[in-house]
Design a protein around this nucleic acid. Structure first.
Lengths: 252, 252
DNA sequence: AAGTCGGGTTGACACAGATCAAAGGGGTAC
DNA sequence: GTACCCCTTTGATCTGTGTCAACCCGACTT
């Protein structure tokens, strides 16, 4: 595990630890969205260095005391919660530009686990200092609120998925969501590597891994996608989308 | 529908429209939690009057432009989202002291519907003004963040429920959650009226109304609760809790 | 006071997805 | 480079919940 290096006023530029929103190509997706050059500089100054994680490492665990939120710089994460009896539920997958750790604000303690699904790097954003700065920079404050609200809206989407959709609809929604997020990051909308296992997908979608596997196979048989192991290519986006609005399209 | 009356410096005291956090017995549960007397007064001044709703009335609808969040003063609400094809998912039930509308912050447009399940009253909290005030009052700012974070954590709990629990576990979790929230408000932990239909419970829990009804009946047969129509009495809290940690209590 | 209607309960049956089982393949660690 | 292990796939069967249907009840409406 890497030391938690704290930059001086000037951000450290050692490879892998340089943290400067103003230089970051994710700034349009991430927390600094909409900030002026000078305000972005002030944000740079409070960001507490980067942190690298190997695949499988925890960024934080349920029960850890909350101090910072994290912005994913590179890599891929999952978050999950577990019950006392050992069942766990993946609550989300996070990629570059997305914010992790907001679950900890309410009780000062993280309530879920965040695990790197591949070698990853995050920016550390000390929350107390972020609050201080956001009370000075209104656009930062507002954007922080938007980011938190977006998380709430995203969660509603997952509830919808878990509460009302059948297995293949869930998987279609999942693939289209990934596709859209990869697109926003300049990657191919139709071809990507899954960083998570079938079991993790299943946990996220409220399905067993076998069901996920079968749904993948079925999509492939029907020419919607081609899939081998973790490599997925979406062949027919429109038809995949129609899976979400079932045949008997009753309108309310 | 009542006019959106704006109080002067001194809050209006007309019955049903008086809005003053400092006088409100919900202040320990609601947004003003932890504020000093004088800060609470400043919050009073921005709150844009109360609004009364009859049972069945919408507080807001998906697509409405976002301007305010709302604090439930009296009554009971549900929030739900619907897909294009008409399926809907209840995302939550809100009671006195809880905050509604935070889904709208991210896009400036509400993404779900909020409906009164009984005659209710809410406080209107204009969001732009709340942001302005919270940048001056650090404890208010922090508490707002906590409230939003709590919503995120709550949503994770619902995902857990939808993703990993069986029908009876879901209903047990639901009843215990209601019980706990009623308790926090000074009502009986064991005896209460459900404000929502079996179908709404089902939607929230990802079950069909018949399944909810059967689970109620089963709980009653087993002496866990007594239920007739919307009136519920919990007879055996401990045993209800054990339903959440199933027999083979594997520990991670 | 009667009629109507929405909500609730219960039963019979169907089916989607879980469970159990086995075998193959690819990636990772050594 | 090789061996092992985890991940994945696929089949057979089981089961919890959905679906369809009938009936009941209580609360409004008129």
């Amino acid at each position: 595990m890497h030391a938690n290096v704290k930059p001086n006023v000037i951000p450290i530029t050692a490879p892998g630890l340089k943290v400067a929103c103003s230089q970051c190509n994710l700034r349009e997706l991430c927390l600094p969205f909409g900030l002026s050059e000078s305000d972005m500089g002030r944000l740079d100054n409070l960001i507490g260095g980067g942190r690298k994680l190997k695949r499988g490492q925890h960024l934080y665990r349920a029960g850890d005391s909350f101090e910072s939120i994290f912005a994913v710089k590179t890599g891929f994460f999952k978050t999950d919660v577990l019950t006392e009896d050992g069942r766990d539920q993946v609550t989300g997958f996070q990629m570059a530009g997305e914010i992790l750790g907001m679950d900890g604000i309410s009780t000062e303690v993280h309530t879920c686990n965040a695990v790197a699904l591949e070698d990853s790097e995050v920016c550390l954003i000390p929350f107390t200092e972020l609050e201080a700065l956001s009370s000075e920079i209104r656009s930062l404050q507002h954007h922080l609120h938007k980011v938190m609200s977006r998380e709430i809206v995203r969660d509603h989407g997952v509830m919808m998925l878990l509460g009302t959709m059948r297995a293949e609809e869930r998987l279609a929604a999942f693939l289209l969501n990934l596709s859209q997020r990869f697109t926003a990051r300049g990657y191919s909308p139709t071809e990507f590597h899954l960083r998570m296992t079938r079991e993790e997908i299943g946990s996220y979608l409220g399905l067993k891994l076998e069901t996920v596997s079968r749904a993948f196979s079925r999509f492939q048989e029907e020419g919607l996608i081609s899939v081998q192991q973790k490599h997925v290519r979406i062949l027919d986006v429109p038809r995949l989308k129609t899976l979400l609005a079932p045949p008997d399209g009753r309108i309310a």
